[in-house]
Write a protein that binds this DNA or RNA. Structure first.
Lengths: 233, 233
DNA sequence: TGGCGCCATTGATCTGGGTCAAGTGCGGTG
DNA sequence: CACCGCACTTGACCCAGATCAATGGCGCCA
């Protein structure tokens, strides 16, 4: 574990109120590994051996059933994934693969559970993290149930615009369109069409580069709502 | 609070490892209320003032956006709802209404948070409960993303059959078909049609009474999978 | 008992999105 | 540079499910 990565991990809400000794012990037991792109890290149904933290790169969580596959979430630095399975010591519900060359911290599940039992600050942070994860997936579930594909895309673009807009008023899509389509629960063909549908609402597309030239019109179509679109609470 | 309801509540995994004094204090601060059917208990967006426990009856959690509404979950005795919002002291993401005359225990949110901070057994139980809630909604999200409406209904019927099958090999739907349709993310018309689609697979429908006469054939269509269909872990 | 409201079913029609296929562009490799 | 593979776009066609409308059944109420 490179010492320069430690502050980044320590600053995660999950770990920031942990006792120094607990945190040091947990990091001592952990592994920092670099993985190439398109590598399967875990498979749904397997027992949860590690809690994963993305230090660099990007990880796709996906699910498969009956010959079908869907992207469930994307994890960026310095996010963690698969916490619930680790805490309950049960099987993963989703598989994970890197979508770029990635550096990941692997924390043995048993050590996480031990620390939960011995460090109150950690336990409280875990409660807040789990509650946040729960609310995050409820929001995604709401979006899928209550919105059309075009509406979902419009809201996603508004969020990216808010988070990533550069000096030219444009932003770059955080991952390829095929993955974005799967994340939104549609086919790549339909994503392409949805972008075209949004053209009259000021959405200019140049590959992965997007520029929103009429945010007001797009918002009128998208109808963003904090109870679905806000992240982090 | 009627003393006869206490053991039921105490036996909930959320409370069963709580210190006696903590539990008594929490119950002392709580209210037991009876509500008629079709009564709105909370509205999404409101601050979380209480943790709710269903003692008798049934509660529907639903979400609204942009003129659309969808059932998100149904809560039976002795289940709780809205735990994450209580713990994070943030707004509810879903509204709730009774779908039958219901007796509910209302536990003030601040008291729950206080108990979380002072009772380790409770904190640990909350972690397990939240992790379970998270995994439950991930499974619902997976089902919606990966299955057709007919497949969802087939799996739902198989689950009810397993849970509720009586001596005649039949079971009663746990709520009206309109609600079931909304829970499965379809219209009542389409639910009706889906039942007809399942007829050749041995699904006999008489109002709310259902009989599965060829479970094997239905399973071949439904393709149940524990990572989506199992509840409780 | 009659009237009303609501749920559920059924039919006709529509539509958002999927499937299939072909074409284009781009990056990587030898 | 040529070739290949893959992502993405576009068009044609299909279809699962929604919408709209009508009907029947049931429970409730005066």
């Amino acid at each position: 574990m490179r010492p320069s990565d430690l502050p980044q991990v320590r600053a995660l809400r999950l770990f920031d109120s942990m006792e120094d000794e607990s945190f040091a012990a947990l990091m001592q037991a952990s592994y920092l590994q670099t993985f190439p792109a398109q590598l399967d890290l875990i498979h749904e149904g397997e027992p949860a051996d590690f809690l994963y933290v993305v230090i660099e790169g990007c990880v796709e969580l996906y699910a498969s059933s009956n010959g079908r596959e869907a992207t469930m979430a994307m994890v960026h630095p310095v996010g963690s994934f698969i916490l619930a399975a680790v805490l309950k010591d049960v099987a993963y519900l989703m598989s994970a693969r890197t979508c770029a060359r990635s550096k990941l911290l692997l924390i043995p599940a048993q050590n996480v559970r031990d620390a939960l039992g011995s460090d109150d600050g950690f336990a409280r942070a875990i409660v807040q993290e789990l509650a946040g994860c729960y609310r995050g997936v409820v929001k995604e579930y709401k979006s899928l149930k209550l919105r059309t594909s075009v509406e979902q895309l419009a809201n996603r673009l508004l969020r990216y615009n808010k988070e990533r807009c550069d000096a030219h008023g444009a932003f770059e899509l955080p991952y390829d369109k095929k993955t974005l389509a799967s994340l939104l629960g549609m086919t790549p063909e339909n994503l392409s069409r949805s972008f075209n549908t949004l053209k009259p609402y000021g959405v200019e597309v140049n590959g992965a580069q997007i520029k929103l030239t009429d945010v007001k019109a797009l918002e009128a179509l998208a109808k963003p709502h904090p109870l679905i679109d806000e992240r982090g609470n």
